[in-house]
Write a protein that binds this DNA or RNA. Sequence first.
DNA 1: CAAAACGTTAGC
DNA 2: GCTAACGTTTTG
Length: 793
Amino acid sequence: MAMSLIADEEDYENSDAEQPRPLNRPKPKMGSSPSAGPCSTAGGVKLSSSRGSSSARRRRTRCRKCEACTRKECGECHFCKDMKKFGGPGRMKQSCIMRQCIAPVLPHTAVCLVCGEAGKEDTVENEEDKFNWMLMECSICNEILHPACLKEKDVGGVVNDELPNCWECPKCNHAGKIGKQKRGPGFKYASNLPGSLLKEQRMPRDIKEELDSNMSTESYTPTLSPVMKKKTEREDNPTCKSEDAFKKRSPKMEDNPLRRKRKLFEKDSDSDSNVRKKKKRSKPDALSTSNVLGQIKTEREDDEEYDEDKIQELDRRPFSFVPSEEDDGDDEREEEEEETMKEKSSREENGKLLHKTSATWEGDQSQGHCTQAGPSNDTGVDAQSRIQRKTKRKPRLPNKELSKELSKQLNQEIQKTEDRLAHQNSRTVKTEPDSDGEDRKPLSNGSSHLRDWLGPKRELNGSLREQSPASCIRTTPTPIFRPTPCRSPPKCVQMERHVIRPPPISPPPDRLPLDDGKNHIMHREVWMAVFSHLAHQDLCVCMQVCKTWNRWCCDKRLWTKINLNRCKSISPLMLSGIIRRQPVSLDLSWTNISKKQLSWLINRLPGLRVLLLAGCSWAAVSALCTSSCPLLRTLDVQWVEGLKDNQIRDLLSPPTDNRPGQLDSRSKLRNVEDLCLAGLDITDESLKLIMKHMPSLSQLDLSYCNHITDQSVNILTAAGTTTRDSLTHINLSDCNKVTDLSLTYFKRCGNICHINLRYCKQVTKEGCEQFIAEMSVSVQFGLIEEKLLSKLS
DNA sequence: CAAAACGTTAGC
DNA sequence: GCTAACGTTTTG
């Protein structure tokens, strides 16, 4: 699919003209550009025999070493479900989403096109030799060869850091070719997923032209032989791109294929965030992790292609603490305050802010250019690298471009920060001319910088509100004013374009590499123990210290709970951050998350156990109807507007997937143990469904459900129901139709230990005392508070 | 255009 | 020869 998106149709015509289509390959595609450079004559793409290829395109294969490769199949993702072993039809033949290799390698059988031999890097000592004798696959012409076997050594190739043994060979590079493959070989696409939001947004013409002209201004600096430009990610597009080709395919070829490989998200689309920004540019979002997640992905995007809007978004988003439940009920006031701030700052915005952000942009620019300028401690490739950098500031680019950049944050940062760390003492400060005081020096001297850099974002305190799985029972907001969630989900959310791979469980390396080539004495796990005491905000700061810390701090053990409660705007960036961290518990309460976003998230969080969606819209929550969340244990949908009996039915209905092998009569929420339905207009109908579909339900919050009656309790506790035995906690506070009669029903529950009947006007103290007395034969209950019964241990 | 389908390669 | 799954084409 990937290829098909970018392949040039002219190729088909060419190949078709020269060779009949093979069976099942009606339109063979080629991997290289028709604007034939030297590559095209020697181009080795399997399917393009018309080009006189002498070598087959080698399919890449798993590295079998990375975290993803070492995982087991999740059994729950779309591709797993297709597998025969999981009862699927086996038609899709794709690997489990959780197992998609991070660094697909060339097959063992790959050989050099020139000398016919395999990679020989192991036979030499010298780093440079190692590079010269390893096999490199060109992402443009797909030729695989030893750099040493190349004749044209006077022109640089461009090494792709993201993929082992991958570069743009000097020939293609010299010819100014651009890759036809968008992401380079071996890369998989999340757009193959159901519910994928990977919609490629068409680039507006003006932007396209801007890009074109922008690209044509890029300079090319020949480098030493067989010198590589190290193409970490989205540095400049290779030289003199074929403008025609670009224009023709511009929506699909905005930049170089490999550079895009890990651009995970489209940022909020122009139609969304830009518009919103213009309207509400300075409205501060009250976020915590939301900022953190976003921040971490954006602030260190230190290459070019920065965008004023992006900066502005960062600038206007202070690190702020999530309002906790004490704030409940204050929403109106909050809204007012926000409005005021919005107005106030929007007045200033046109002048100051724009100016400031522009400066920030510049700062990032220059810094970004230099972060890679130092030698790397990585490999011989780096050792001989001559990194090319544009000296020219790029004009503002469309959000689309930016978003791609944002999403590559992790790997990019890894590389850059490590480089910086490795050379912090040996390089001059000139390598990082932080003209704006945004110096991002490494740990030894940089912590204050980091703090400064984050500036106002850290003025609010750190730790995230931890919400226990069962907390929904205890966090019911004051019902007088229904809290107002943000009601304007993004209109056109642009989502991730590629697979977002979850973090490794114990990310390598084991020890922090130091400048002198040695390792720090402390083992990773010791660091991890330290990190585990940090708030998420602080973790994010740590992630910016160096590559190793970046990896370590992304360890999902540090992110088991992610709290975006009351985040006013869930951006694709945050979603990307969430996926990377694979939380077990996710709080999206009172956010404006959209259905698409939620669906996208859920499908990528197979390990999610706690999902808090209080105060979200039913439109969003309905994503649960179509998404699989097999391990979900806790679900909080309290105060979800529009969530009534019919919606409960939709939520609990078994999947309606009619594909062969997908029949499952069980509810997707069958494993839920802790359910919060507070504040919903549900009736006995819902309870019947819950009883039927949630056999493990242990904690149920029905507070503020005005339609709940004694009969509802009767249903819940009727003979033959599993709820009767599974139920341990029930919250019926503020249910005015509930009377003492309910208490008699609860006597049937064998495991009940917590009954909350506070503020139930028809429940009497006598009724409670009678319950305690009658239960005392088997279990000792007591009144914790008025009408709050709890088992005494 | 995204998702599904599937021929074929890679590894064992 | 088998399974896994890559990379492409086809489908809706």
